[in-house]
Amino acid sequence: MAFAAAFFYLFSAVAVAAAVMVIVSRNPVHSVLFLILTFFNAAGLFVLLGAEFLAMILVVVYVGAVAVLFLFVVMMLDIDFAELRAGILNYAPVGATIGLILLVELALVYSGWVLSPEAIEGITAPAEGDAGLTNTEALGQLLYTRYIYFFQMAGLVLLVAMIGAIVLTLRHKPGVRRQDIAAQVARTPETAIEVKQVKPGQGI
């Protein structure tokens, strides 16, 4: 138990520190890298909670896709982050207010647990399932049986999103040279080389 607690404090401390660094670091690339570090530590927290599926999804989706996309955007677009950051202190009161509200909400939730200990039992009702299943298996068994319809519909929505992105953005430019490996391999010395008789002193 103490071991788990130690890891909890490790992951949370690093996550909070990395989150702070996301905001304050000067170089936007560093910000994104700190964001990835935050995600990894949040995934560690999920593992401690026994939600290994969520942990892996967090790494795969947020680190693997979202954060890398951020990184691409940050590196490829010419954005002057110093300029964007110029007025950041003006927004400090708004940010502080939001932080304060979140803090109050957290305090309310926590005091709810303290005042009525039975309330916490209501939120920790695990989904029914066979004992000894990992939660990936348990989710899979529900998702592909009871919720098969919703799952398939979600798949269709994603298909439409993909078709839509291609319809609206893909342009076939004429005259673009593409690599044609078959044509390259099929070249013979006869088609590739032309022998010219060059008279001395004249050039081609």
Partner: peptide, 12 residues
């Protein structure tokens, strides 16, 4: 889910 499938196609 039905509504989103329909709407997303309509946006495109």
């Amino acid at each position: 889910m039905g509504l989103e499938l329909q709407s997303l196609s309509l946006y495109v």
